[in-house]
């Protein structure tokens, strides 16, 4: 799978990310760094410990990174969680939102792993 196909599969915005970074190898370099970003694991830990301030900070960071990479559906998932905990304890949507972001994050990382060099 090439980069354009990968973005299409993830419903992400290829044109947007290419406007930003101009060259595919630069986008690839940053996509591969996404999996190493510690904020995702920190978010899960904060979620398990009901540390909502921690969930807010990490999802806030992740929505920014994913947005810059043009991964708009994933960025939207992080945005929804971030807003859910902005003022403290979340509502009933919280757990389904976290489950959804886990699925989408895994799908994104898998898609990135399948990219041609």
């Amino acid at each position: 799978m090439n980069l354009r196909e990968c973005y299409a599969a993830l419903d992400a915005d290829y044109e947007d990310v290419m406007e930003r970074f101009l060259r595919e190898e630069v986008v690839l370099r940053f996509l591969r760094k996404l999996e190493q970003n510690p904020d995702y694991d920190r978010m899960l830990t904060a979620y398990e410990q009901k540390d909502y301030a921690g969930v807010f900070t990490t999802t806030h960071n992740l929505k920014g990174v994913c947005g810059t990479l043009g991964l708009k559906p994933l960025a939207k998932c992080f945005y929804d969680i971030c807003e859910e905990v902005r003022y403290g304890a979340p509502g009933e949507n919280f757990v389904p939102l976290v489950e959804r972001v886990q699925q989408m994050y895994r799908a994104t990382i898998d898609a990135i792993s399948g990219l041609e060099e």
Binding site: V26, L34, G64, V65, T68
Partner: peptide, 13 residues
């Protein structure tokens, strides 16, 4: 920026 990836992506541009 406190997020390393954000910093690097911005620096790239």
């Amino acid at each position: 920026d406190d997020v390393e990836m954000d910093r690097e992506m911005l620096a790239e541009v």
